[in-house]
Amino acid sequence: MPALIVPTTRLHTAWLEAHDEWGPGSHEDGFGLRPSDEVDSPAGFAAWVARLGRESGQATIEAHRVHCTYRWIVEGDQVLGGIALRHGFNDFVQAAGHVGYGIRPSARRRGLATWALGRILDEARKHGMDQVLIVCAADNIASAKTIERHGGVPEGIRDTHLGPARRYWIKIGRTAT
């Protein structure tokens, strides 16, 4: 049974296995990984996990000043993917969306992205968000279907620095207090 967890140094080896499966140059959305992050050594990995906010699961992306909640999708001691919820709405969120996620290739087609997106939308609701923007590559039909399963309404396709991207809005409403 999958779980969403706060990033942890305990899963260093398992995370590296997932990272290696993506291969060099591949995009691993949802992990908050930057090109400058050194994750191979225990010290570098610990620094990266600390930057993600291991204690609270939240951090600020300094270059874009976006408050973010990171979660790893795990099953047992295996890292299957990652998902991030970006709070607020600035230029970075306008381009990348409120939610980013990625599932390692060997774990795809199991419904994990759909499941994880549902959980992170619950988190967005708890943070008082009424709606979220989700962006995916225009040719990523699997991701588009995942977003649409959660009520994603297409805004259109825009050209980005990574190529054409589909943009969706999901209305989630607030949790009653």
Rank of each mutant, 00 (worst) to 15 (best):
T146Y: 02
V74N: 12
S143C: 12
L4C: 04
N90M: 06
I147W: 01
V49Q: 03
R51V: 08
R174K: 14
L133R: 11
H150Y: 06
V74K: 06
K171T: 14
E62S: 12
H67I: 08
A43C: 03
D91F: 07
V79Q: 02
C136K: 04
H64E: 15
R149D: 05
L133K: 08
G88W: 12
T60V: 15
E62T: 13
G173S: 14
R167I: 02
E155A: 11
G44L: 04
E62H: 08
I103R: 09
D91R: 13
R119C: 03
P154V: 09
Y168V: 12
H127M: 02
V66L: 05
A14I: 05
A116N: 01
C68D: 08
G156D: 06
H150A: 00
S36H: 12
T13G: 09
G81H: 10
E123W: 08
L33M: 00
P154W: 00
L16D: 04
S56W: 05
A116L: 09
D139H: 14
Y101M: 13
I120A: 00
D37P: 07
G44K: 01
Q78V: 11
L4M: 04
R51K: 11
E21K: 00
D159L: 10
D139P: 02
S143W: 04
T8D: 05
A84I: 00
D77K: 06
R54H: 12
G53Y: 11
P35T: 04
D37R: 13
L121D: 01
W115C: 04
S26Q: 15
E28F: 06
A43N: 05
P164N: 01
A18E: 08
R149V: 07
A50Y: 03
H87N: 09
R125T: 10
Q78C: 11
F92Q: 05
A3F: 05
D122H: 08
P154R: 15
E55C: 02
A144K: 10
L16G: 02
A59F: 02
T146H: 02
G156T: 09
H150Q: 05
L16M: 11
D130C: 01
D77R: 14
I103P: 12
E123V: 08
L16A: 03
I141V: 15
P24W: 01
D139Q: 11
G156Q: 14
A96C: 06
G152N: 07
